[in-house]
Amino acid sequence: MHGIMYGTETSSEELSRLSSLSELGRRALECKVEADLSDEAEALVRKVVESNPDDYTLWNYRREWLLSLKGEAHDRLVKVWNDELRLTEKALLRHPKAYATWQHRVWLLAEAKDMEIDLATRTGLFEKELALCSKMLKMDARNFHAWAHWERVSKIAGKHEPARVVEYTEQQINADFSNYSAWHYRSVNLAEGIPIQDKTALDQLLDEEVDRLRQAFYTDPDSQSAWFYYRWLLNGAPYYSEGKTSALFNIKDEFLKNELKACQELIDLEPFSKWALLTKVYLLRRLGREAEAEDTIVKLTEIDPMRLGYYRNLASTSTRAV
């Protein structure tokens, strides 16, 4: 999780646990070399991946073992699949960001059909995935694996539910508006997630989004996730669908002028807010007010000398979008 340090000292018990674990890992790899698909080998591998969920070689080995069960009785397969999902869950609770484990879970769900596990069972499995994602996000609302898993699983299930995602991102943003993942998945799903009937509804949606952002900017102007989402909105909220990119909103100069005014109000309160100033540069350029934009960039170089090179480059690429 963010900002939480791992312990710096390793206790003697931990050291002995680690050394016995590496011994087990070595033995498990030997089994793999010998292509041993026996129950004993399986139990050994299970023990190792549970403690070390990052070991992708051993997860691969487990997949070989799982595939070897093809054609067995349906009941047995369902049990094995449930056990395997439980194993990955245990592993994820130990290490919530183990790529190999998340990958293994996705594989299990994708492969269930090929293994001839029936539809009812598979539907049940997918419901559990959403519960797992919620559980993992409750532990760490910014666990990008859990967010991505939700998307992947929805795709496999053929149950893409953008409205549900948009609603969920709102909850997460309310809980912590510095949650970049929440803003990101909101942007990815917004166009499809909100049924837009007419222009009035679109205008209203834009107002609501901007108002929510305004609350975030004024509560904490240093929280950058909201500023990124704002930039995306000012671009008309572009989204990719059916092979082409379209914009959800038609952004007019009038709107940009209003936003510039609001941005300036915040700068009046917080003259050193670099995100507000950077956004001001962007808005000025969109409105073709290059000279004022350059003045603002000079100010940025003064208050944020650590990124001098970035601002110089910004000044030199006046025609390009910021």
Binding site: A216, Y218, T219, D220, L266, L269, E270
Partner: peptide, 21 residues
């Protein structure tokens, strides 16, 4: 908390800034 300030309808955006600061 910060998230409750963010969601609050009681205080306006500029008031939020003054309070948080």
């Amino acid at each position: 908390s910060r998230s409750e300030v963010f969601q609050s309808r009681l205080i306006s955006a500029p008031e939020k800034r003054l309070l948080m600061r």
